[in-house]
């Protein structure tokens, strides 16, 4: 009895505190001033775009398109890698996108990675080995800032997982360079693009430090595919998706197998359960 009485008093007390000191002032402000005005906010694109027909790895039945991954690697190597590291990926991983062991060894050797001179111990650059990780273009964050207008180019190994709807975000961002709507700019000076930044309507605060990169024809694909901005965006997105999660396709394939087995086992289990309970009427 005392517990219940105490409970009622405590409950009413707590509710009173909440309603009178927190809710009431809030409601008062709301009713007198209405909803607080949202700060000037450029209507940036919340919905990312996807390439026509989607990616090969999309959906539960997706697979890697190795030709695309290799083109994407070429884009990363020739364009992105100037500023962005890919530090969780090793050259040996390239075997997973269709290169042979010897091709990987040769490819790794085209990259210079930090090393130690075996004779005098000085810090040198040496050709990469398959076991090396992709090198970072900058020695440290401070250098990265100094070279890039105070913005650190993010590592790309996980970029498609580290952003909301990351795969489509990367694809959209590559093609999102544009001019701001003059009407919006007229409304608020906040929407003017500051010097050194670039307007990109898919970037969360619309002005991005990275200049437009994938201009038509900036790479020439060895398989003869035309290097349009769209094509390169799709290719590099596919490559970065693979880089972010090399086990993606294996995961989905394993999933079908596991779910199939579970389905079979569950049906057997259900029949067994029905048999066990057959003599016990359960409901009225």
């Amino acid at each position: 009895m005392t517990i219940r009485l105490g409970g009622i008093i405590l409950g009413l007390g707590l509710t009173a505190v909440l309603l009178l000191w927190s809710l009431a002032p809030g409601l008062f402000t709301l009713t007198s001033e209405g909803f607080p005005e949202k700060p000037d906010y450029y209507a940036f694109q919340e919905e990312n775009i996807a390439p026509e027909g989607g990616f090969a790895f999309d959906g539960p039945l997706g697979t890697w398109d190795y030709a695309q991954l290799q083109r994407g690697y070429q884009v990363y190597k020739e364009v992105c890698s100037a500023c962005h590291s890919l530090k969780y990926v090793a050259f040996r991983n390239l075997e997973q996108i269709g290169y042979t062991e010897d091709e990987v060894r040769a490819e790794a050797a085209t990259w210079m990675v930090p090393g130690i001179d075996e004779k005098d111990g000085s810090v040198i650059e040496r050709p990469g080995l398959p076991t090396d990780q992709f090198p970072s273009p900058y020695a440290n964050d401070i250098e990265a800032r100094a070279f890039n207008n105070n913005a650190i180019p993010p590592d790309l190994s996980l970029i498609t997982k580290a952003r909301k709807d990351g795969v489509h975000y990367v694809y959209s961002l590559m093609q999102g360079y544009n001019e701001p709507d003059p009407e919006d700019v007229a409304k608020s000076p906040n929407f003017e693009t500051p010097p050194g930044l670039y307007f990109n309507e898919y970037f969360y605060n619309i002005n991005i430090a990275m200049p437009p990169q994938l201009l038509d024809g900036i790479v020439s694909y060895s398989d003869g595919t035309e290097a349009t901005t769209e094509q390169m965006s799709a290719d590099v997105t596919a490559f970065l998706t693979w880089a972010g999660e090399p086990s993606l396709i294996k995961r989905k394939q394993t999933g079908w197998f596991v779910i199939g087995f579970l389905l079979f086992a569950t049906i057997l289990g259900f029949l067994s359960y029905k048999t066990v309970w057959a003599t016990k009427k359960k409901k009225i």
Binding site: P60, R251, K252, T254, G255, W256, V258, I259, L262, L263, A265, T266, G269, F270, S272, Y273, V276, W277
Partner: peptide, 22 residues
């Protein structure tokens, strides 16, 4: 028996998340 088959059912949902939307 009842827990057994129900566990299988839950594991199907669990696998769907783990393998397709982790």
């Amino acid at each position: 028996a009842k827990d057994g088959w129900f566990l299988g059912l839950i594991l199907i949902f669990f696998s769907a998340i783990v393998f397709f939307a982790p």
